[in-house]
Nucleic acid binder design. Structure first.
Lengths: 244, 244
DNA sequence: CCAAAAGTGTTATTCATACACCCATGG
DNA sequence: CCATGGGTGTATGAATAACACTTTTGG
């Protein structure tokens, strides 16, 4: 099946709820950077958009979000949180979608529902960077890669604002729901944990006090030491306590 | 125009976005109780539902929410916050809407879009209780009154869960955004402020420390004393400082 | 003068921050 | 032994909680 057929099947069928989309800010932590997974659009210009999609007429919103997340990361059972609704009239996706369909080679017809005005539900997801194998959406994506939150590429529509709102919400929820641990692997050193906090909050934290604060919360289980071969004391590995 | 005509105009026209609704948890503070404005449905059984509505095809989500809020409270420029999306498949509004349309006397037709499955966007609003004049939606409501959060009546679909989630979010945001002040009038005594906090958080607070905490925030302006005629020291009135 | 509630000074406790030192590790 | 980074004891300061006292009001 070629792209045009695939596209026409996609927009032709009456399978999705109209005028509502989901946009996902997929956060990963790597190389002491908070990163976002961003597909690059198939356009002449360089433009990126959040991984998103539509909700099936007989599909729960949660399921749709999980489906979208799995389609780009390959992961199931991802931590996610809804953080906002983006429904202003001036968010113009029509021109963008038209440009893309033209590029693919689809004859644009005015009545295609994808050209309509959309309300977007914003979710952020926290994933373990190393476990993700970025996947392409055959129709839309030219590439799909991680970008540091500090060096975001050119983003479509209001996706930069969506990312910003998602990041703000993550910062508020970081301690409140212990969300950040979803960015790390099963085990981690205290330094890794601290770097993750520092990166999300975008401010330095004191090593000694951070360690105490985390240990005092009584949520960490100390495991064996991690011998890295470096000429210094080996740090302990920790994991989140299972039962609370 | 009778009810049936009004209904058919409502569902007949292609003015709203399909399968998406807005539900508003309108909080008011009165008589030391946190209350929610709830319309009672036109049914044989006693059932209440959150004030809600649909989003116009050419209307922003924010505008739709404000329109819904004004239609029930008579107030414009209401403080509101989006707190969740309710999109599970088992939220069955179809039977409910059918029962209502039967009750009104409308010939139910399967294709009416209002019978479809809906995703609801949850907003909470904070209003000044005394300024609200509850209004009826001519088609749907039998009555519209305030109910204490502690003694909620029977609620349709998942509206009890929506209220609960809204309340939880309000609690988290209470200090963070100084949201609670929107429940009080222009001026208020420290006791009123404290009662409002206690009611929302559902826990007692110490009078002395609460006063200090509020004053230390440097957001309150002290006005004249309020002589109530009671045999005790007259409390000061306060208002939120205008410029920050 | 009294009771009730408001306002505030003072103390105690807890929590966050800062400084210091010791320990482990590989070269 | 050294350099480097990890772990923790302790001191300091800030925020919070608790106690106590004084003031104001109408009867």
């Amino acid at each position: 099946m070629d792209l045009i057929q695939e596209f026409e099947q996609w927009v032709g069928e009456d399978t999705y709820i109209k005028q509502v989309s989901i946009d996902c800010v997929i956060f990963g932590f790597h190389d002491n950077n908070l990163k976002v997974l961003l597909p690059k659009l198939k356009l002449d210009e360089d433009l990126w958009a959040l991984p998103g999609g539509y909700i099936g007429k007989d599909e729960s919103v949660l399921n749709a979000t999980r489906r979208i997340l799995e389609s780009r990361t390959g992961l199931v059972d991802i931590y996610l949180e809804q953080f906002g609704v983006f429904g202003e009239l001036n968010r113009n996706s029509k021109d963008l979608v038209k440009t893309i369909t033209n590029k693919i080679g689809v004859t644009t017809e005015e009545h295609f529902w994808v050209f309509d005005r959309f309300i977007s539900l914003g979710f952020y997801a926290l994933v373990e960077y190393s476990k993700v194998t970025p996947r392409l959406n055959n129709i839309l994506d030219e590439s799909c890669d991680w970008y540091s939150i500090k060096e975001l590429p050119a983003l479509a529509i209001d996706h930069d604002q969506i990312i910003q709102k998602g990041l703000e919400t993550l910062r508020i929820m970081l301690d409140h729901k212990l969300a950040g641990f979803n960015l790390l692997g099963e085990t981690f050193t205290m330094k890794e944990l601290q770097k993750m906090y520092e990166t999300i909050l975008d401010k330095p934290l004191r090593r000694d006090n951070f360690q105490r604060k985390m240990l005092d919360m009584d949520i960490l289980e100390r495991l064996e030491k991690q011998y890295t071969g470096a000429a210094n004391k080996a740090p302990y590995l920790y994991k989140l306590k299972t039962i609370k």
